[in-house]
Design a binder for these strands. Sequence first.
RNA 1: CGGGGUGUAGCUCAGUAUGGUUAGAGUAUCUGGUUUGGGACCAGAGGGCCGAAGGUUCGAGUCCUUUCACCCCGACCA
Length: 434
Amino acid sequence: MRRSRAFIPTTKEVPSDATLPSHQFLIRGGFINQQGAGLYNFLPLGKIVLEKIRAIVKEELDRAGCSEVQLSFVTPIGLWERSGRSEAMGKEMLRIADRHQNEFVLSPTNEEAMVELVKNRVTSYKDLPLNLYQINTKFRDEARPRYGLLRGREFLMKDGYSFHASTEDMIREFHLMEATYKKIFTRLGLNFRVVAADSGAIGGTGSKEFHVLADSGEDTIVVCEACDYGANIETIFQTKEEVDSLNAKSYEELQTKRIDEKCACGGKLSFKKGIEVGHIFQLGDKYSKALEANFNDENGKPRPFEMATFGIGVSRLVASVIEQNHDENGCIWTKATAPYMVNIMISNIKEEAQVTLGEALYAALQAENVSVMLDDTKERFGFKMKDAELIGFPYTVIIGKELANGLVQIFDRRTKENFAVGAHEIFEKIMELV
RNA sequence: CGGGGUGUAGCUCAGUAUGGUUAGAGUAUCUGGUUUGGGACCAGAGGGCCGAAGGUUCGAGUCCUUUCACCCCGACCA
């Protein structure tokens, strides 16, 4: 993409209502903009990042044997009344009426819809197990949306549901999904921990959360420094007061605090702040029983499905990457999430030699399917550099005054290192890096 | 949902205690010029139903009533 033709409205000024780095930089960098409380538009750059994350999620799930579907976002209220969740979820469900005054709900999650879909279509143990997922918009009418994409009302979430003939098989799938989630978050380049968690309103017997470690995380988790044990503090402290007092503490305070008890492995336990980006639940037959969704077992006897459910906050991940990867100048995208891998910056577009080299490199990288931006705008050097840092391209090729000496520079966004490369070998050098 | 706050130019904000010329600044945008290695400089221009609706008044951005929106703290939650 040519910068001169792109729609990337960056700003120098910090929007007044954004407090977190991810919120500020995603708005300042022209990735998103706010439409209303907890409602965000994804601009071209934000959309690219969102789609990259979605693609990785899909790829790993498909590889693990899951099948993607897409359920209708608007659902009849009756679906929720049958399961009792119309009552249970209360005002968090946004209800609307159509022209006939029939009531509908903007889906906050889809256990009911997925069970209804499978019910009477999967009727034999021979058809099990089955794991269906979708990556679709969700709406939860949060009492208080905040933190930009981290806690919006409308958000993109991957929700998966698996159906099994036995508890053992459900647990096997649960472990498979845990491993798959680890692959996904590792591919995204995130530093994360898997922790034991509360099942909350969704219900079920066992659940695990996946937390991206970040100072601004809303959850407090306990992690072992030696092994991979971790737990949400909600699961280990008895009273709500204890949890609340911990949540009130600042990150610095928590960082230095150790828990007296040791981990089962003997390692030290410490507090961390985390952003919940994934949650997997062992549901059992809670929903299949309530909605009378049965299959016939080996003896021809009807039994309710054993189920598990798996969520990943896709739009929340966009912000999580930045919460974990930024500096005072802006975003630092991981390679898997960067909107463009390379930014070719022509320092002065009035210099013909610079333009010629920039255009040639742009064409060559495109031919190799490297995602590349060509900054061919009339701005000055400083402006373009600030802009590139704000947006967070992993690499910026600076074609400037050193070209007179046959040199260009590669600027590494993460390390902020700037190293000179011969103009004739810049293409090969970039291909090594990406 | 309780408590607090804010709505004035695309954005960040003055102006409102005490009503009174033509509503300002910075930034962004456009024009011209200068400049070209870290959001540069000079000159000029455009841009506003002062959140909305009522009311008080000779006169309302400013006072009163109602309403909507957004933000912050808390409770709740992916």
